Simulated assay, not measured.
Amino acid sequence: MAFKLKTGPITAEATITVHHPADGEITFTGKFQILKQSQYQTLVQGKKDDFQIIREVMIGWSGVTDEDGRDKPFTSDALSELCAYSFVRTGIMRAYTDLHVGLSAPKN
């Protein structure tokens, strides 16, 4: 198979693993915009924390529910709520970084 150089936007899904201190290992699927290296460098320069980066690269999810088990739609407010804990942000950043640098295949 030949390598196709994509010049347009790239999006990919990845399994996000969260190590919850009370509930153990939990997974859900995140959808990300994969930035070119120059775009990523510009993004991370001047950012004070990982949540600012997550807001720019995460564009959707599946497998996230509210406390009653109903699907939680992806919104800016829901993302803020989800990322209130560092252990969640760590899982998201690990999944994105693996996609960004080519360490993991996208979720099919």
Rank of each mutant, 00 (worst) to 15 (best):
A2Y: 08
K4S: 14
G8D: 14
G8H: 14
P9M: 04
P9R: 06
I10R: 15
T11Q: 09
A12Y: 04
A12H: 07
A12L: 08
E13C: 06
E13H: 05
A14G: 15
A14C: 13
T15K: 13
I16E: 12
H19E: 12
H19N: 13
H19Y: 13
H20L: 09
H20M: 04
P21E: 08
P21N: 10
A22Y: 04
A22V: 07
D23E: 08
G24F: 01
G24C: 08
T27Y: 13
T27V: 10
T27N: 15
F28K: 05
G30L: 11
G30M: 00
K31S: 13
F32P: 01
F32T: 06
K36V: 00
K36Y: 09
S38R: 10
Q39P: 00
Q41S: 10
T42A: 14
T42F: 00
V44P: 08
K48R: 10
F51H: 14
Q52R: 00
Q52T: 01
I53L: 11
I54P: 00
R55L: 11
E56W: 03
V57Y: 06
V57C: 02
M58I: 13
I59A: 03
G60S: 13
G63C: 03
G63P: 06
G63S: 04
T65K: 06
D66I: 08
D68F: 11
D68E: 07
G69P: 06
R70I: 00
D71G: 06
K72M: 15
P73R: 03
S76M: 12
S76N: 09
D77K: 03
L79C: 09
S80D: 04
S80K: 09
E81D: 05
E81T: 10
E81W: 10
C83Y: 01
A84W: 02
S86L: 07
G91N: 08
I92R: 02
T97R: 10
D98L: 09
D98W: 01
L99S: 14
H100N: 01
L103D: 15
L103W: 12
L103C: 06
A105E: 05
A105K: 15
P106G: 11
P106T: 03
K107Q: 08
N108E: 10
N108Q: 10
